[in-house]
Structure formats: C-alpha cells, structure tokens
Nucleic acid binder design. Structure first.
Lengths: 146, 146
DNA sequence: TCCAATTCAATTGCGTACGATTTAATTTAC
DNA sequence: GTAAATTAAATCGTACGCAATTGAATTGGA
C-alpha cells in the first residue's frame, strides 16, 4: 500500500484523507441551509433508499457503530429529520424513520448539491472510473483489516 | 460530482470517506506500538521530509489549521516526538523540530507499516493510477471551494 | 423452565476537524 | 516613531469517529 517514496504527496493514504476532508468541506457549504452535517446527510441518503431501518443496519451500511450513530441520530431527531422508536417485537432494536420534513426536503437538497456542482462540468466517465478504483481500494483495505 | 443515481454506493464522496476511515483504522493497528495516531504520523512524514518547520507551514502541507495542530503537536511533544520553540527572530512563529527519538524511529515505523502491507502484494501501477486520480479529484474539489 | 450466551443500543473517554474569535508580535504607512 | 494593518498561534465550542465497557432484552440449550 505504501510505495518506496515515503513523501506526503506520494502517499495514497494522505490523498484519500485530504480528498475526504475537502468533500466534507464542500458538503458543509451545500448543506448549511438545511442545518445538516455531512455524516447526517449520509444517514438521509441511506434512509431515502430504505426507510425504517434499525440502527445496526444503518451502521452496517455506513460502517458506523452505535457510539457514533446514537448521538448523531439524536441530533437529527432534535432537528426534525427522523424519529427513533422501539418496535413492539424487540426492545433491543431502535427503528429509525424519516419524518415528513425529510421526505419533502429530498429534491431541494439534491438541487442545492447539483447547483454547487454544476459550474464544474464534471466528466462522468472519470467520476465512474474514480469510483470503481475507490471500491477496489476499499476491498483491499477490508481484506487487510481482517 | 454527484451522478444521477443518488445511492450511497454510487456516491464518490462516500467511497472516499469510507476508504479514508479504513486507512485510519489500518494505520491505527500499524502505529499502535509507537503510541502514534494517524494524523500524528502524517506530521512525522512531513517533518522527515523537512525538519524544523513553522506550524503554519506544516499546516499548509497537511491542510490543517492551528486549531487542529496546536493540541496535536502538544500531545506529540508530551510523547517525545518533537519540540516546539519560538525562534529569536519572530515570536509569532512556532518552530516544530523532530527529536532524536523521532529520527531514530523512522526506519522502525516504516518497517512496521511495510510488514502490515506485505501480505497483500499490492499492484504498484494500480497504486499510482489511484493516486493520480485522487490528485485530480483534490484539484477539482479545491477549485469548487474557491 | 431457567440460566448462560448472544444481540443490541447506550455510555465513556480521547483525539481529531474546523468555524469563529482572541491575543500577541511584527510590519507597513505616514 | 507610532498607529493601523497584517500575520501567526492559541482558545473555544460543536460534531464526529472509534475502542472499550455497560446494561437491557432476547434467544437457546439442558
């Protein structure tokens, strides 16, 4: 994973880390009007795909533990994005559901993001290549961590 | 930057974010014996390239502000990795220098990382392709944030 | 049935990240 | 030479991330 040249700019780890923080900064701008942070937006993305997920399933998709999700979801509940309730069948689980506000805001939020992106005329095929390479990288890292 | 398919797995931002957190987890394992965190290791990488940098230059390379670096560097000083001192010429600056311990540990630390990587026989040309793509991505993001 | 193992969410503690502000030192303009 | 502008580190407050532990609920085997 690390090349012989151990300079900062030649470290894949640093370039990924740097890009990730720039993405966070970018989304911060786009999401500011909605009082959403970037990790909170990821939770919405997952719930827009599938509503009413138990916390541990949400955590599985996002690779978050309850130590990260519990306080984050409480903040989102406070801000009216979702509800947290125990199902009658199993009191260990916590079902997370979108509110009306969250369902309604979806097109607005996507529009806000697209508008921020629009000026850059992104190359779609390059986007997909980069995405594919990142998926390979993730797979490699997951193998290494087993 | 965002494709029409707004699912989690098709979001470049999430794949970068996920990869970055996996890298952090990987380096946590490799760096544990040295009492170093991953951002602290990045500081060492920069100082191994060029010793005796003022805080703001270190921050420029790593894209960190003093709000992040000040406490991080204090922890590293406590653990014996570096010294922080005001130069006689300009008392606004803070010069960060490696300790003997940090210079000596360099080969050991690289060996530890390489050992963790070795089992995976990484494809060097793919490493470089991914690195190049990430650099392009970083450039795009920096343009978008200007 | 009943208790041991398992499954979950919550809690704790620490170290980032980062916007915003403050404080101190130096430089510049006049 | 001095006040204003600039530069730089530190401080403050909030929100992650995550290892480790706790505690409650459920399941499963004797």
């Amino acid at each position: 994973m690390a090349p012989d040249d151990m300079t900062l700019t030649n470290q894949l780890c640093f370039s990924v880390y740097h890009a990730s923080r720039l993405f966070t900064k970018f989304y911060k701008q786009a999401l500011e009007p909605f009082q959403l942070t970037y990790p909170q937006y990821l939770v919405l993305l997952s719930l827009w795909e599938e509503d009413r997920q138990p916390l541990h399933k949400l955590g599985e998709r996002l690779d978050f533990g309850s130590n990260t999700l519990t306080p984050l979801l409480k903040r989102m509940e406070t801000n009216g994005w979702l509800t947290r309730r125990l199902p009658a069948t199993d009191h260990r689980q916590l079902i997370v559901s979108l509110t009306e506000q969250a369902r309604d805001a979806k097109p607005e939020i996507f529009a806000a993001i697209h508008q921020c992106v629009a000026q850059q005329n992104v190359d779609v095929s390059k986007y997909n290549d980069t995405l594919a390479m990142n998926h390979e990288l993730i797979a490699t890292l997951q193998r290494m961590l087993k």
